[in-house]
Amino acid sequence: MALHPFVATMLATQKEAGAPALSAGTPDDARALVAAGRAAIGPGRDTAETREVTVPTRSGSIGARLHVPHGDVTGLVVYLHGGGWVVATVDDYDTLGRELAHHSRCAVLLPDYRLAPEHPFPAGLEDTEDVLTWIGADPELGALPLVVAGDSAGGNLATVALRRLRGRVSPVLQVLVYPVTDGARDTESYRDCAEGLGLTARDMAWFFGHYAPAEDHLHPDVAPLRADDLAGLPPTAVVTAEYDVLRSEGEAYAQRLREAGVDVTSKRYPGVTHGFVRLHHHIDVARDAVADIAEAITTAVAAARPVGHTEKENA
């Protein structure tokens, strides 16, 4: 399918304006570039409550933002934001977090995990693990069915942390949105989508270079596609984009999970590029993806609730 008209126009406008690539400057330059696009994402939904949370970790503490939707809260989604382990903050994902809370009827927690290069691998991964174990010990959040989700590098952190925490953390679902799953960067989609589509092959090499030394790029805790054993991971929903360097490895990871006996649904969204889910205010494909993700979450959460459980009891 051809590029979605909105995406094609957006990319052409960026090219005409001479917008720099994420990898063109320093990490701070890239962070400023991402932050500058925040307003264009659009406003977020109203919530019953939004509060800042402090999460203790083995390295001190990190912040997180909790969005609580109106009405009965049926579960908790921990959403790890993307950004190549180097850029983006919870502010850049606030709108998406609110949207997921509204549609899924789950509280959504956005952890502000540490970023490279100031805090390289495994800092962000350890923060993710510590958030998930902290939730399990929290009397309020730990009582809710848990979904762990993330996009791009956040999807990488989500699934690696869950593999390392098997037997200790038991989510009802993991949602991996165009996840980073390998460090080889030699797939079909890397060749087909290397340039001109927002996230480039050069950008990904730059992100990997800041996140971890080259000798770790194929380590299973950086490249989960290369893990020997993926059995025991939770049911999984994988989202990929047609025009994305990460498409092939996301779909390959879905297949590896299936082969390991994991219940997996995987959907490739046509005509869109990496990062498209955050454009749900602008394009129908992104709205469809958010709705699909929310449906997967609500279905998994409903299946996990005790027989005879009522909405009132969970309020």
Rank of each mutant, 00 (worst) to 15 (best):
D138Y: 15
A252G: 07
D292F: 10
L110K: 02
S61N: 11
L110H: 00
Y178G: 03
A24F: 14
E215V: 11
H67R: 00
F6Y: 14
L246F: 07
A123V: 14
L109Y: 05
Y190G: 10
M10Q: 15
T298P: 05
V34G: 11
W134Y: 08
T128W: 14
P56Y: 15
V264K: 03
H281G: 10
G154M: 14
A223H: 04
L132P: 06
G155W: 09
L80T: 00
I41T: 12
A223Y: 00
G250M: 05
R278S: 09
A158N: 02
A2E: 13
T310I: 05
V77E: 03
L110I: 08
A8D: 13
I62G: 05
L233F: 03
V78N: 04
Y113A: 09
K312N: 02
A116Y: 00
K267Y: 14
A39L: 02
A296G: 03
E49T: 03
L144E: 05
T265Q: 11
D263S: 13
A39R: 01
R268T: 10
R105S: 15
D112Y: 00
D182Y: 15
K312D: 00
S248L: 09
R65F: 06
T310N: 00
S23F: 14
L157A: 01
R98Q: 08
R65G: 06
P139I: 07
E129A: 12
V160L: 01
L141A: 08
H309S: 15
H309E: 15
T133D: 13
T57F: 11
I62T: 03
E242M: 06
G82C: 01
T9Y: 09
R202E: 15
C193Y: 08
V148L: 02
M204F: 12
M204Q: 10
R166A: 09
A21P: 02
V55Q: 05
S248C: 07
D229H: 12
E295R: 15
L157R: 00
G71Q: 04
I283E: 01
E249F: 01
A12L: 11
A149I: 05
Y93L: 03
S104Q: 09
A201E: 06
L109W: 06
D192Y: 07
V177H: 02
A241H: 09
V108E: 15
L218Q: 09
L22C: 12
F208E: 01
G275A: 04
R278H: 03
G155D: 01
G136I: 14
L176S: 11
G183M: 06
H217G: 00
P270Y: 00
P224T: 11
T299E: 14
H103I: 12
E311F: 08
W134Q: 12
L22A: 13
H281M: 10
P145G: 06
L199P: 04
S248G: 04
V87R: 11
S152W: 07
L146P: 03
L100Q: 03
G167V: 12
V7Y: 01
P179T: 08
G308L: 10
F207C: 08
L146H: 01
R164H: 03
Y243S: 09
